[in-house]
């Protein structure tokens, strides 16, 4: 497809139309992000008077100053999310790779039965409510930071990804020679296989880490102490408290003056920027692993 190739007229037309459509779609994908960043640097009164705009009359960094004036809550939320993401990903990735390894071994006779056992809950289950009661009444995980980690530790889909990757990309002779050399399963896994499957561990690790980083639901279900809120839930909470206050204000017909207590409109956007920043910064570097993961996942083992 070098530039020297002569394109047919059909292709040339297609090229122009496609580029126009793709540019339009890409703009739509990017616009909310730009609006968020511009909004967070807009003067709050300008927003209240004129609404959000891509070209605000007055700029301001007051929103960021407000957030970082009393940074304790934001810092706490950051700490929680970093801890949950790091510890959760480490444990989940360990469980996932060792399980995937064991299930990939042809000498392991129960492997298919165990695979079915692991798969069945994705087909049928008790649903949210019995699970919630298990977490809170039996395991007593209410308001514990482990309630943010435990629910995402085991994913059958990820285990199967690892299993399929080992099956299709690691030659069986490698296992045999390891056995001849007297290496046990744990050593074979740790010293021979693990270094060979980094593409799939990187991908699965990032899937898991992104899930932990973006989670708000588990905080919502289990956490009651504000200092244990995850970052996304902290953002969610900030939005909703201000939304609720606005509704209250609308109902009261403006009788109640609560403007002073409202988290300012632009502070919400500044908080959104603070909560999403790391993802957007890291995104260009990790993007290719996600692409790889989808392609690996589509190969049936």
């Amino acid at each position: 497809m070098g530039s020297a190739t002569k394109y047919t007229r059909g292709h040339a037309t297609f090229n122009i139309v496609s580029k126009a459509i793709l540019a339009g779609f890409a703009t739509a994908c990017l616009l909310p992000f730009i609006l968020m960043i511009i909004g967070s640097f807009t003067d709050n009164t300008t927003v209240l008077l004129n609404g959000y705009s891509l070209f605000p009359e007055k700029w301001s960094i007051a929103a960021y100053e407000l957030i970082f004036k009393y940074p304790k809550q934001v810092v706490d939320a950051y700490k929680v999310t970093i801890f949950v993401t790091a510890v959760g990903t480490a444990i989940a990735l360990t469980i996932t790779t060792i399980s995937g390894y064991a299930l990939s071994r042809p000498t392991f006779r129960s492997r298919n039965k165990i695979a079915l056992y692991l798969y069945f809950p994705s087909l049928f289950g008790g649903g949210l409510i019995p699970w919630y009661i298990m977490m809170t009444q039996v395991l007593r995980l209410s308001d514990s930071i482990w309630a943010l980690i435990i629910p995402s530790l085991v994913s059958t889909y990820n285990i199967f990804l690892v299993r399929n990757f080992i099956r299709t990309s690691v030659p069986l002779e490698l296992f045999e020679s390891a056995k001849i050399d007297g290496a046990g399963e744990l050593r074979t896994f740790g010293q021979i296989i693990l270094p060979l499957i980094t593409p799939v561990t990187a991908t699965v690790g990032l899937f898991i880490a992104l899930g932990y980083w973006n989670d708000w639901f588990l905080s919502n279900l289990f956490i009651t102490t504000p200092s244990k809120y995850s970052l996304q839930y902290y953002l969610y909470n900030m939005l909703n408290s201000s939304k609720a206050l606005q509704e209250l204000k609308a109902i009261s017909g403006g009788d109640i003056s609560i403007d002073i207590d409202l988290p300012s409109e632009t502070a919400k956007l500044a908080m959104a920027v603070v909560a999403t920043g790391p993802i957007i910064m890291l995104y260009p570097f990790v993007q290719r692993y996600f692409v790889k993961g989808l392609v690996i996942g589509s190969v049936k083992g």
Binding site: F25, C29, W213, N214, W216, Q232, L235, A272, A275, T276
Partner: peptide
């Protein structure tokens, strides 16, 4: 166009 996949639903709500 791949970017929106990476952000949390909370942000989508925002």
């Amino acid at each position: 166009i791949f970017l929106p996949h990476f952000v949390s639903m909370v942000l989508v709500g925002v």
